[in-house]
Amino acid sequence: MGRTYLITTVTLEREPIFADFHLARSAILELRRCDALDLSRTLAFVLMPDHLHWLVELRDGSLCDLVQRFKSVSAKNINAMDASPGRRRWQAGFHDHALRDEDDLPAMARYVVANPLRAGIVRTVRDYPHWDAVWL
């Protein structure tokens, strides 16, 4: 607990479900719920059309439990909005990188939120609606 990770998780078959603004906001709401439940502290995230990058400090439980909860509840909420109960939304597993004390967290946060810029989706990060960071 208290360890910081960079998580990357991908939608099933890289389906760009988060190109839909409302489905993206629903997934982001679940990130915020994880923080509100004190399971995590989100330092930065960007929700791309087909994947999530999440810079997160683990607060309670295991990293696997946190990511599983996020993916499970966000999929259930998306399916309710999309009238498709039981549909899988996320690929199994996730990639994680544990950060060390000497890692530059603000630089890592900037890297995370600049993902839409590097992908050529927007010309400036300000134009992309699905990101947030504690500091930049």
Results as ranks from 00 to 15, higher is better:
Ala27His: 02
His22Ile: 12
Arg118Leu: 08
Val10Trp: 07
Ala80Ile: 04
Val73Tyr: 05
Asp101Phe: 06
Asn79Tyr: 02
Ala24Lys: 12
Arg33His: 15
Ala109Thr: 07
Arg3Ser: 10
Ile78Val: 11
Asn115Lys: 03
Leu47Ser: 13
Gln91Phe: 01
Trp135Lys: 05
Leu52Tyr: 09
Ala83Asn: 15
Leu55Met: 13
Ala107Cys: 05
Val67Cys: 11
Ser40Phe: 01
Lys71Trp: 11
Leu63Asp: 00
Phe70Tyr: 12
Thr8Gln: 03
Met1Ser: 08
Arg14His: 12
Phe70Arg: 02
Ser72Gln: 08
Asp60Gly: 06
Leu6Glu: 12
Ala36Gln: 11
Tyr111Arg: 05
Asp101Glu: 12
Glu57Ile: 00
Met108Ala: 10
Leu58Val: 02
Phe18Gln: 01
Glu15Gln: 14
Arg32Val: 11
Met48Leu: 05
Leu31Ile: 08
Asn77Leu: 05
Leu58Gly: 02
Ala27Lys: 06
Leu58Tyr: 04
Leu117His: 08
Asp60Cys: 10
Cys34Ser: 08
Thr124Tyr: 12
Asp103His: 14
Asp132His: 13
Pro16Arg: 10
Arg89Phe: 07
His97Asn: 05
Arg32Ala: 15
Leu58Ser: 05
Tyr5Met: 02
Glu57Cys: 12
Val134Gln: 13
Arg89Gln: 15
Glu15His: 07
Asn115Met: 12
Arg25Val: 04
Arg33Phe: 00
Val112Cys: 13
Pro129Glu: 13
Tyr5Trp: 09
Thr9Pro: 12
Arg25Cys: 09
Ser40Glu: 03
Asp20Lys: 04
Ala36Leu: 07
Lys71Ile: 04
Thr9Ile: 04
Glu30Val: 13
Gly2Asn: 12
Cys34Tyr: 05
His53Pro: 00
His22Pro: 01
Leu12Trp: 12
Val67Lys: 14
Pro116Glu: 04
Thr9His: 03
Cys34Asp: 04
Thr4Ile: 09
His51Ile: 02
Ile121Val: 05
Pro116Tyr: 10
Arg14Met: 03
Lys76Arg: 15
Cys64Trp: 09
Leu117Ser: 08
Asp82Ile: 07
Arg110Tyr: 09
Arg69Leu: 14
Arg89Ser: 05
Ala107Trp: 08
Pro49Gln: 13
His97Cys: 10
Leu55Tyr: 00
Leu105Met: 09
Asp38Val: 06
Arg69Glu: 08
Pro49Thr: 11
Gly86Tyr: 07
Ala109Tyr: 06
Pro129Thr: 01
Glu57Tyr: 04
Leu55Pro: 00
Arg41Val: 10
Ile7Gly: 04
Leu52Ser: 07
Arg69His: 11
Leu99Glu: 13
Ala19Tyr: 06
Cys34Lys: 00
Ala83Arg: 15
Tyr111Glu: 06
Leu37Arg: 11
Asp35Met: 11
Arg89His: 13
Ile78Gln: 08
Asp50Phe: 12
His130Asn: 15
Thr9Ala: 15
Leu55Lys: 01
Met1Cys: 04
Ser62Glu: 09
Gln68Phe: 05
Asp104Val: 14
Asp101Cys: 05
Ala107Tyr: 06
Val122Tyr: 05
Asp82Glu: 02
Leu6His: 14
Val10Phe: 11
Gly93Ser: 11
Leu117Cys: 02
Trp135His: 10
His22Leu: 08
Phe94Trp: 05
Leu105Glu: 08
Arg3Ala: 15
Arg118Phe: 10
Leu52Trp: 06
Gly86Leu: 03
Phe45Pro: 00
Val134Phe: 07
Arg3Val: 10
Ile17Glu: 01
Pro16Trp: 09
Ala80Lys: 14
Thr42Asp: 06
Leu37Phe: 04
Pro85Lys: 08
Asp65Pro: 00
Gly2Tyr: 07
